[in-house]
Design a protein around this nucleic acid. Structure first.
Lengths: 144, 144
DNA sequence: TTCCTGTCTAACAACAATTGCAAATTGGGC
DNA sequence: GCCCAATTTGCAATTGTTGTTAGACAGGAA
């Protein structure tokens, strides 16, 4: 995701308005690697701007997603998570606490999307997602 | 997933009852590689047993899932999908029509879960899922 | 600065997927 | 066939998200 100032520019260049709500959301996301849900973004922003509505947060997150500035992730449990890191990487999801950790994308030099492309039989791949499920270190010792 | 007869045995051995509803659901799933949703399983079963409730379908799908006979998949759009194929494989999801195709799991001999395990820093991986997103052959020609 | 217009926000209703609950029903050991 | 715990049903509740709309506001023009 671009920095708040650049996003401001981007929005303006598309004829969209710069509102305090949007700026607050840009700032809450910038450099955030916690893979927040819409609700936790709302909590963060609402701390300083209690009048903001969850609806506005969803709206802006969706706008950013369709501009490609944000990736929406869905790990099958709970709500959608948003990831400002749009570079290629994958995720490790803790089944116990729900924490999501970023992982480097390099699997010993194997280019995932193209690997065994023969098996994709005519399917045109535009994105590849890898999710590792298991237990984070804290939860291993916790539950052991 | 085991065959209906074996599932009957399995359920019975766990003190669970064999009801016509359950048997019908076993049969609807057996050999089904369409990755059906709860609702489409319901439709299938309800064709022959109109009195069955969607609630019962959910219940049984969840039971089968917690016995490990079924895998629940969530591709981030629409409802959960259920997969009676519990052997290692991954999925190609068409972004346009929603169709899900099974893919062989072998990526040129790379053992995904262990690859670059150094990057998983203490995270204990129990399952690895790979999702390829894109367009199936039909949708490529359709939209072109 | 002020006005104007189209966009945005907030509040609330609607919605889809799934689960909780309680009452009625039923499988299967006796 | 009886009985009881397990199951099914129907419906309400819940969760996460989106639709709607009236009023508020950003930002260009005068």
């Amino acid at each position: 995701m671009k920095a708040p100032a650049e996003l401001t520019e981007l929005f303006r260049s598309q004829g969209l308005k710069i509102t305090p709500q949007r700026v607050a959301i840009f700032e809450a996301l910038h450099g955030n690697d916690a893979h927040p849900t819409a609700d936790s973004v709302y909590d963060t922003v609402a701390a300083d701007m209690p009048s903001i509505s969850l609806r506005t947060v969803y709206q802006t997150l969706n706008d950013l997603t369709s501009m490609g500035e944000l990736h929406q992730l869905q790990f099958g449990v709970g709500s959608a998570r948003f990831d400002p890191n749009t570079t290629a990487h994958h995720h490790a999801v803790c089944e116990r606490c729900g924490q999501v950790r970023d992982l480097a994308v390099d699997f010993d030099g194997v280019d995932m999307p193209r690997a065994r492309s023969g098996h994709l039989q005519g399917f045109r791949v535009t994105a590849t997602e890898v999710v590792f499920r298991g237990l984070c270190q804290a939860c291993q010792t916790d539950s052991g």
